[in-house]
Design a binder for these strands. Structure first.
Length: 452
RNA sequence: GUGGGUGUAGCUCAGCUGGUAGAGCAUCGCGUUGUGGUCGCGAGGGUCGCGGGUUCAAGCCCCGUCACUCACCCCA
């Protein structure tokens, strides 16, 4: 009797990768981590849950997108309890702010940390949008005052990581929220958040619809036109300042924002020419950003949306007495890898770490094959022993299916020595497991682009 | 949460006006008695998402439901 068939279905928004895809993701994780550490960011991990009270009120739809957590056995009236209600974190910035407050006495400031973890958002999944995904964050937090130059440093670190990854050309768009805020106040639009939210859709729905929505929200035609004129400004140098001045609006908040953004763009233009752009339409949804904000798009794939975003927050971490202002930026690794794999054919050269399959001649000699494998591993060559003493043709096919480049044949040489075969070329040579050199390119799975 | 689309083999999909469930790819076996890939032959694999209804008869029509998916909202 066979057991009844069980229907297995994916859970929408909770992606799982095939082995080759996971190798691509691991390569991205390794690279990002290496670059973060090269810049002196220290690793931190926070728990997956926070009291829902702390997750609330961060702007956007944080409330309805937060997953609550409770024991299945708990009755409804027990949920919460002494620990309060818990929710899964929806980003890494809010938990980090809490972590800083909790450990302020044991940390040294300015505190530079990186954090690579899963986050959860209870929204409707779409292409490149998931309910469970991995973010790779860097943040710098200081006590009381945060040096403005770190706002320029964040995107430069990201630029270095991206340059080492097969993502092609990219642009990091930078804005300072005080620019639109001061500008809107200067033209008499007092609903800054609401206006930002509408203007943020510019790239998606176009200027006409944005203007219509602004008017619907209470702006005059003139105000809508001015807001759009500001959002249209986009330069890769500091000339955006003159363009804003030419619009003839003045407000102290606007001035502060222009000065700050000019410093970031100026630094970027010198240290990473062509990657940073001042884009005055970038707004960001989360309410806690107070100054500089970042978004990142891959050139040619702008419709994917941002794959790396962040900004400055001045009051997210505060115990009421001391405030810890910070700035951070976060790579949406799951989105980035998923899109590169599905849209640009990124994959791995094989589906297993093994570079060598050690063949088994017969079950009586399995131990000899095991000894070969041990000798290879001792010298850092990932390998596995064939699962059965099948015909050599089948053992070779086992390796071929997985992309394992070499098959090792114990005792195949004339004098009873071993031989190793490169199954791509068919070349088979005498070899000794204690001296054989695996070509460096074959030692680990490589990230490659699928042909076609 | 709101609105549309789609559910048939592991994957991609056919399936006519309702009449006994199909193809390609993949998998496994044999040809090829210990060196793969090509080629040839063969085999296995299905509660047609689930539940109900109409009908002599439903993969097909109707209702419901679930899942997936696209758009909105929002965002990495």
């Amino acid at each position: 009797m066979t057991p009844p068939a069980v229907k297995v279905t994916p859970v929408s928004g909770f992606p799982e990768l095939l082995p080759t895809e996971r190798f691509v993701e691991l390569h991205f994780l390794d690279t990002v981590r290496e670059v973060f550490e090269l810049h002196g960011f220290t690793p931190v991990e926070t728990r997956a849950v926070e009291p829902v009270e702390r997750l609330r009120g961060q702007g956007g739809d944080a409330d309805k997108e937060t997953y609550g957590i409770h024991r299945l056995a708990a009755r409804a009236d027990e949920r919460g309890g002494s620990d309060g209600e818990l929710g899964l974190h929806f980003d890494l910035t809010v938990p980090f702010a809490r972590y800083v407050l909790e450990n302020a006495a044991r940390l040294s400031f300015p505190f530079r940390r990186y954090q690579i973890q899963k986050v959860w958002r209870g929204e409707r999944p779409q292409e490149g949008r998931f309910r469970e995904f991995t973010q790779a964050d860097i943040d710098v937090v200081d006590i009381g005052e945060l040096a403005p130059h770190v706002e320029a440093e964040m995107p430069l670190v990201i630029a270095e990581a991206f340059r080492r990854l097969p993502v092609g050309e990219f642009r990091i768009q930078v804005n300072d929220r005080r620019i639109p805020e001061g500008f809107y106040l200067g033209i008499g639009l007092t609903d800054v958040a609401g206006t930002l939210r509408i203007v943020d859709k510019l790239a998606k729905i176009g200027p006409d619809k944005v203007a219509a929505q602004l008017v619907e929200a209470g702006a005059t035609d003139e105000q809508a036109a001015q807001a759009l004129a500001l959002a249209a400004i986009r330069t890769d140098d500091v000339s955006f300042v003159e363009q804003v001045r030419a619009l003839g609006i003045s407000h102290p908040t606007l001035d502060a924002g222009l000065e700050s953004l000019a410093a970031v763009i100026d630094t970027g233009a010198r240290r990473a020419p062509g990657t940073l752009v001042a884009d005055l339409s970038v707004a960001r949804g989360l309410d806690y950003y107070t100054g500089t904000v970042y978004e990142t798009q891959l050139v040619g794939s702008e419709d994917w949306g941002s794959v790396c975003s962040g900004g400055r927050y001045d009051s997210l971490a505060s115990d009421g007495r001391t405030t810890y202002p910070g700035v951070g930026i976060s790579i949406g690794l799951t989105r980035l890898v998923h899109l590169l794999v599905t849209k640009r054919g990124l994959t791995a050269s094989r589906s297993t770490p093994a570079a060598v399959l050690v063949a088994v001649v017969d079950e009586e000699s399995r131990e000899r094959s095991g000894a070969v494998a041990a000798a290879l591993r001792a010298r850092g060559v990932p390998c596995e022993v064939a699962p059965s003493a099948a015909k050599f043709g089948k053992q070779i096919r086992y390796a071929d299916r997985r992309g394992i480049p070499y098959v090792w044949f114990p005792g195949a040489g004339d004098g009873g020595g071993d031989q190793v075969k490169d199954i791509r070329s068919g070349e088979q040579l005498d070899a000794d497991a204690t001296t054989w050199e695996c070509p460096a390119d074959d030692l680990r799975p490589a990230v490659v682009t699928r042909a076609g």
